[in-house]
Computed example of a mutant assay.
Amino acid sequence: MSVRRPIAALAVISALAACAEPVPRGELPFTPVYQGVETRLLDGDLVSFLVAMRGARDPQDVERYAECAAAQYAIIRGYGFARHLRTTVEEEAGLWRGDAVYTISAALPAGLKTIDAEVTALSCAENGIPMV
Rank of each mutant, 00 (worst) to 15 (best):
Y34M: 00
D116Q: 05
G111F: 01
G26V: 01
A107L: 15
V132I: 11
A15V: 07
P29M: 05
F81K: 03
V23H: 09
T31I: 12
R25S: 09
L85A: 10
P32L: 00
A66F: 13
A18T: 12
N127M: 07
V47T: 02
E91Y: 12
S123C: 10
T103H: 09
A20T: 11
R57E: 02
A74S: 08
A121N: 05
R54A: 11
I75V: 07
D116Y: 05
N127G: 07
D61L: 04
P22T: 06
E90K: 14
A93C: 12
I129M: 04
R83V: 12
E90I: 13
L41T: 07
Q35T: 12
V62R: 09
I75T: 07
R64K: 14
R25A: 09
F30V: 08
R5M: 15
L122F: 08
E118D: 13
Q60C: 10
T120G: 09
S123L: 10
I13H: 10
L122S: 14
A66N: 00
P59V: 01
G98F: 11
V89C: 06
E118G: 08
A106L: 06
S14Q: 15
A11I: 08
R97I: 05
P109A: 06
P29E: 03
I7S: 14
P59Y: 02
F30P: 08
A69L: 02
L41Y: 03
R5K: 13
D99G: 02
A66G: 01
A74Q: 12
R57M: 00
I13N: 05
R25Y: 01
V132K: 14
A17L: 14
A52K: 04
S14Y: 11
V47Q: 02
L46V: 03
A11G: 11
V33L: 14
A15T: 11
V23G: 00
V3Q: 15
A110C: 11
E126W: 09
V33A: 13
V33R: 09
R97C: 06
R54N: 07
Y102R: 08
A15I: 04
A11L: 08
L95I: 02
G55L: 00
T39S: 12
A70Y: 01
A117C: 04
T31V: 12
E38C: 11
I75K: 04
E63T: 00
R57N: 03
A125V: 03
R97L: 01
G55K: 02
I104C: 04
D58Y: 00
P6W: 02
L112T: 14
P22S: 08
D45N: 10
V119P: 15
A20K: 01
S48H: 08
A82L: 12
T114S: 11
E38A: 15
